[in-house]
């Protein structure tokens, strides 16, 4: 069982704290989503984990060992950091063969991971002819090359088409089900919630949340119901009588907080209030995340009218 353990990890660049006292563990057998706005320190944390950058303070270990001390590290840990890491003039197969040789990974693994990532047909083409999505797949192939028990992927869904997104969800679920330790970064809440069991949320280098996805949704996502009616007076009266916290915008749409469609639907039907629309608001998960990271986002764009 291989865990990732990060203790008081800090990294400064020219006096700026990019990673600030991070403390967390990533457990095997589940997918851990590493979430944060761009610039929150996710990629720096990955580089610190792999010994590519030296921490200003603190430690990062994999299975109790610092990464640079691992023997043949690709057989223990697979990582995707940069989709552009493969040289454009080399074929995907040659790129992986060189990587495999460095850790004495048998060459047949190269064909296995090319097959697994759907690149077998284009394996002998130069990487420069690849789309961003294909380069991401090649990066993932490189991460899986040594059949590692720990998989670290930095924004793997970047540039993937919808089919690729579905594929990577299934892949991550499978890797976790096989008992591997899977850490996947993203800046997209909805996407991450679709495959992660556990969340680490980062803002400006600090850990904001370390929580199971279900608990995050339960604690942070307030159920909202959207209602439109032809009889606003009757609806207003009904909501007030049942003590619901409701508000109405200029377009005449009501938002009712802390309730569920099931309850409101029955109430409105019994009171004979006509219904034009009755729906659960979907964006709340994203909002909970934005709410959590808003103050921590470094470059906040001025809010735009939708």
């Amino acid at each position: 069982m291989t865990s990732i353990d990060v203790r008081e990890l800090t990294k400064e660049y020219g006096g700026r704290r990019v990673v600030d006292g991070l403390d967390f563990s990533v457990r095997p057998g589940r997918v851990t989503g590493f979430l944060g706005p761009n610039g929150a320190g996710k990629s720096t944390t990955f580089r610190l984990l792999l010994g590519l950058d030296r921490p200003t303070a603190g430690t990062a270990t994999i299975g109790g060992e610092a990464y640079p001390r691992l023997r043949e590290p690709l057989r223990r840990v697979g990582a995707l950091l940069d989709a552009g890491a493969a040289h454009g003039s080399r074929t995907a197969r040659d790129h992986l063969l060189a990587l495999a040789a460095s850790n004495r990974v048998p060459a047949r693994r190269v064909d296995t991971v090319l097959e697994e990532t759907g690149l077998a047909a284009v394996a002998r083409r130069r990487v420069r002819t690849y789309s961003l999505g294909m380069r991401q797949r090649l990066g993932i192939a490189a991460a899986l090359l040594g059949d590692p028990e720990v998989v670290l992927l930095d924004e793997p869904a970047n540039g993937l088409d919808p089919e690729g997104i579905i594929w990577i969800r299934a892949l991550l679920r499978r890797l976790a089900a096989e008992g591997r330790t899977v850490l996947v970064s993203s800046h997209l809440m909805g996407e991450t919630a679709a495959f992660a069991d556990h969340l680490l949320i980062l803002g400006r280098g600090r850990l904001l949340a370390d929580t199971p996805v279900r608990e995050f949704i339960h604690a942070r996502v307030r159920p909202h119901v959207r209602i439109r009616t032809t009889d606003p007076a009757a609806l207003s009266d009904l909501l007030a009588r049942h003590g619901h916290d409701a508000s109405r915008d200029e377009a005449g749409t009501w938002i009712v907080r802390h309730t569920r469609v099931d309850d409101l639907g029955r109430l409105m039907s019994e009171a004979g209030v006509p219904v034009l629309e009755l729906a659960t608001r979907e964006a709340t998960l994203e909002e909970a995340y934005l709410d959590l990271t808003a103050s921590e986002t470094e470059f906040t764009a001025p809010p735009q009218e939708a």
């Binding site: 580089r47 792999l50 010994g51 640079p68 690709l74 950091l81 940069d82 552009g84 890491a85 040289h87």
Partner: peptide
């Protein structure tokens, strides 16, 4: 120089950390 483009060296040194 081919190692110093597109993060190639990161991949190289993650395979051979010494």
């Amino acid at each position: 120089a081919s190692e110093f483009r597109g993060g190639a060296l990161r991949l190289t040194l993650s395979a051979v950390p010494d």
